[in-house]
């Protein structure tokens, strides 16, 4: 027998009231390659941040803090748009 969810666990209708809870769903394991950041080369231009489709560039006070691997799908956009080649993609 299939094990379906219990309807009593849902609020009325097909709704979710915990905004942005998909952060708990980690897409990081979809990755084929992984970005590496060379902080020495980084000029904090934030190009990688504005183009990252998965919000995986961590920033603090307008500066790049690091790369968050929980959701990074390894697309490589960050490496491609970096004007200083501070990010490189490598096999995982």
């Amino acid at each position: 027998m299939v094990n379906l969810a219990n309807y009593k666990d849902f609020i009325v209708g097909d709704r979710v009231i915990e905004a942005g809870n998909s952060e708990r769903f980690h897409t990081g394991d979809w990755r084929g390659q992984i970005p590496y950041l060379d902080k020495d080369k980084c000029i904090n231009c934030l190009s990688c941040w504005i183009y990252c489709p998965d919000d995986s560039i961590m920033t603090e006070n307008g500066k790049i803090k690091g790369l968050k691997m929980t959701h990074c799908k390894g697309c490589g956009i960050c490496a491609k748009v970096c004007p200083k080649n501070a990010i490189t993609m490598k096999g995982e």
Binding site: E23, R24, F25, I50, D54, K73, C75
Partner: peptide, 19 residues
């Protein structure tokens, strides 16, 4: 728009939505 969405790697839809 939080991460954990399941758009394909390299998809620009989330990029545009955030912008």
């Amino acid at each position: 728009l939080a991460s954990g969405h399941r758009l394909c790697a390299g998809c620009t839809e989330s990029v545009i939505a955030k912008q």
